[in-house]
C-alpha cells in the first residue's frame, strides 16, 4: 500500500482557530473532517505537486462540537461534522426529510458512513476516471492543464449535460441532490448559501468556498405536510459505489423540486421537469412527461448516451414514488 503523502496536522479548538489557520496558510491548508476523501487523494496523488495541502486542519476538535441534529422552528439543523450514519439513522430525519436520510444511507459503505461527515460529502472533489488516475497521469483542466482527456476518451460515466469550464466529470455526492430537492441552505463561517448555488467547478475544488471558509451547518426547512421526498441511486453495485445517476425529489402540497446528480459537473436541478408537474396530479403520464422534460437538454458524449435513459428512469420512478404514501 502506498504511503499517504506528508502533511502537518493541526487540531482546531474553535471555528475561529480553524479559519484563521486556513487563512494563514493561503490555500496550502485544507479543512479535515472524516478524511475518507482527502486521505485517498493524498495516497494516490492524482493532483500535480502544487495543488496538495501541506496542512490539514482537524475540525473534529472544535468545541462546541459541530456534530448535532436538531429541529427548531420548522428548520432542521445539522452540524457540519455530523456523521452520515447518524443522519441515516435519525428517526426525525427519516420521518420528515426522508430523501436526506435515504441519501445518507446510500453513501459508499457502512464503514465510510461511520467516518464521513455531511460537509465532507458535499465538498468531495468532482472527479472522473481520468481525474482520479494516480500520479497526475492525466493533467486535465481541473489540475491546471490545458485539455480534458475525457471529452475524447472513454466517458461512459461522464456528464450528459455538457461541460462546465471545459470539465465533463460529474459530481458524485449522494447528499447534494437531497439538499437541493429539500431546498436546504448551507451555512458557512462567512455566509448562508442556497444549496443550488453551493457547487462550482474549479481547480481542483468543487464548491464556491473560499480558502478560509468552512461549512458550519446545513439547514433544511421542514417540507409541507403533504409533500413527500424521495431519493434514488443507480449504481453498478448496491454498496461501496458512487452513483452512475442519483436524484432526489420533493413533490406534493403544491411543491415540485427535482434534482439529479452524477449527470453533470455540478448537481443538476431538473427545472423543466418541475414545471411539467406544476398543478398536475401525479400519475404514470405526468411522471413520464416529467422524465422526458428532465433530460430534454441532455447532450451525450461519445460513450454515455445510456446514462440519459438511466436518468430518465430515475426521474420517472422518483416522481411515481412520491405518490405512494
Amino acid at each position: 500500500m502506498r504511503t499517504i503523502r506528508k502533511f502537518e496536522f493541526l487540531n482546531a479548538r474553535t471555528i475561529d482557530e480553524a479559519v484563521n489557520t486556513l487563512a494563514a496558510y493561503k490555500g496550502k491548508a485544507w479543512p479535515f473532517a472524516g478524511g475518507t476523501d482527502i486521505l485517498r487523494m493524498m495516497r494516490f496523488q492524482p493532483l500535480p505537486e502544487n495543488l496538495y495541502p501541506e496542512v490539514l486542519i482537524n475540525l473534529k476538535t472544535i468545541s462546541p462540537s459541530l456534530e448535532y441534529i436538531k429541529e427548531e422552528d420548522g428548520i432542521l439543523s445539522i452540524g457540519a461534522l455530523t456523521k452520515l450514519v447518524d443522519i441515516a439513522n435519525n428517526a426525525l430525519v427519516g420521518e420528515r426529510y426522508s430523501a436526506l436520510a435515504n441519501a445518507a444511507n446510500k453513501v459508499a459503505s457502512p464503514q465510510i458512513r461511520n467516518m464521513a461527515t455531511i460537509s465532507g460529502n458535499i465538498c468531495q472533489l468532482t472527479h472522473c476516471l481520468y481525474f482520479s488516475k494516480p500520479d497526475n497521469r492525466f493533467h486535465c483542466l481541473r489540475k491546471g492543464g490545458s485539455e480534458c482527456p475525457a471529452q475524447l476518451g472513454d466517458n461512459r460515466y461522464c456528464s450528459i449535460f455538457g461541460d462546465v469550464n471545459g470539465c465533463v466529470a460529474v459530481n458524485t455526492s449522494d447528499i447534494a441532490p437531497a439538499l437541493i430537492a429539500l431546498n436546504a441552505r448551507i451555512k458557512t463561517n462567512k455566509r448562508m448559501v442556497n444549496a443550488g448555488e453551493f457547487w462550482d467547478v474549479r481547480v481542483p475544488g468543487s464548491t464556491i468556498l473560499d480558502e478560509d471558509e468552512i461549512v458550519v451547518e446545513i439547514q433544511v426547512p421542514r417540507p409541507p405536510p403533504d409533500a413527500k421526498s424521495v431519493f434514488m441511486k443507480f449504481s453498478i453495485r448496491s454498496s461501496i459505489d458512487f452513483p452512475i445517476v442519483n436524484g432526489a425529489a420533493l413533490i406534493g402540497d403544491g411543491v415540485a423540486r427535482i434534482a439529479l446528480n452524477a449527470v453533470a459537473p455540478k448537481p443538476y436541478r431538473a427545472t423543466k421537469a418541475e414545471e411539467v408537474l406544476k398543478g398536475k396530479t401525479i400519475d404514470e403520464t405526468a411522471a413520464e412527461e416529467a422524465a422526458i422534460a428532465a433530460v430534454s437538454e441532455a447532450s451525450p458524449l461519445s460513450f454515455n448516451k445510456w446514462k440519459i435513459s438511466v436518468a430518465k428512469a430515475i426521474v420517472k420512478r422518483m416522481v411515481l414514488n412520491t405518490k405512494s404514501r
Binding site: M1, R2, R40, R43, F44, S109, Q111, N114, I240
Partner: peptide, 20 residues
C-alpha cells in the same frame, strides 16, 4: 484495495463502530 477505502479488509472498531 491498497488503501482505496473500497474493500473493508482493514476494518477495526473505533469507539464501537466499524471504520477503515
Amino acid at each position: 484495495c491498497q488503501g482505496d477505502g473500497s474493500c473493508g479488509s482493514c476494518t477495526v472498531m473505533l469507539d464501537g463502530k466499524p471504520v477503515l
